[in-house]
Simulated assay, not measured.
Amino acid sequence: MGAVKSPIGDEAQKIAGDVLQGSLIDLIDLSLVAKQAHWNLTGRNFKVVHEHLDEIVALARGGQDDVAERAVAIGVNPDGRARTVADRTRIPQLEAGYLDDDKVVAAVTDILAQIIARFRERITATDEADPVTQDLLIGIARELEKQHWMFQAQT
């Protein structure tokens, strides 16, 4: 199969492609960070936070698939390789070893706030370039903001 012909213009494709790639990296690393915290969590609120982290993982994994498939639909190849994510992530990494539940809640709250800020910038960037991509990002941002609120309420 040859390259997918983009249904949008070259400039719009470039803007949307860059936005989608950045979103993909954020979502892949969010799922990894949340799973790392899930496995190493300790503390009095272990069960609630442990289960809540799995909600973050499910949200991030679903979102990354939607983002990557949108990129392909507009003729852009998504790059979710481990090396790419490691080199380009902007998400602060958690410490190795056991993690206190209060520290995890604070870290995840902060990480979600950072990702939401980037998603909001991407939503603005795609306003004219690609409203379909913008709609996808709005839906993911809505769910990220809901999770941010729920984690923030635990601090």
Rank of each mutant, 00 (worst) to 15 (best):
L27D: 12
A34H: 00
I74Y: 13
E121K: 15
E55I: 05
S23N: 14
K35I: 04
K103F: 05
T42W: 01
F119L: 11
A125I: 00
N45T: 10
Y98H: 12
D79L: 09
V48R: 12
I56V: 15
L94A: 08
L30I: 09
A82S: 12
P92M: 01
I56S: 06
R122K: 11
R90D: 08
G75L: 09
G62V: 08
E69S: 09
W39G: 01
R90H: 14
V104D: 07
V85D: 03
H38K: 06
I91R: 13
A96I: 03
V85C: 05
D54N: 13
I111R: 09
H52P: 00
D102I: 07
D26V: 01
N45F: 10
S23D: 13
E51Q: 06
A37I: 01
D18E: 15
E55A: 10
L112Q: 02
R44Q: 10
G75C: 10
Q21W: 10
G63T: 02
G43C: 10
R44W: 05
L24T: 00
A117Q: 10
G75E: 10
T42D: 09
R122Y: 14
Q114R: 15
K103S: 07
N45L: 11
R61I: 06
I74C: 11
E69T: 09
T89H: 08
D65K: 14
L94C: 08
I15F: 06
A58G: 01
D29G: 04
S31Q: 12
P78H: 12
I116M: 03
Q64P: 00
G97N: 03
T124D: 12
D101K: 07
D100K: 08
A60N: 09
V33C: 00
L99E: 02
N77G: 12
Q93K: 14
L20T: 06
L30P: 06
P92F: 03
V48Q: 14
I116D: 11
N77D: 12
H50P: 06
V72I: 15
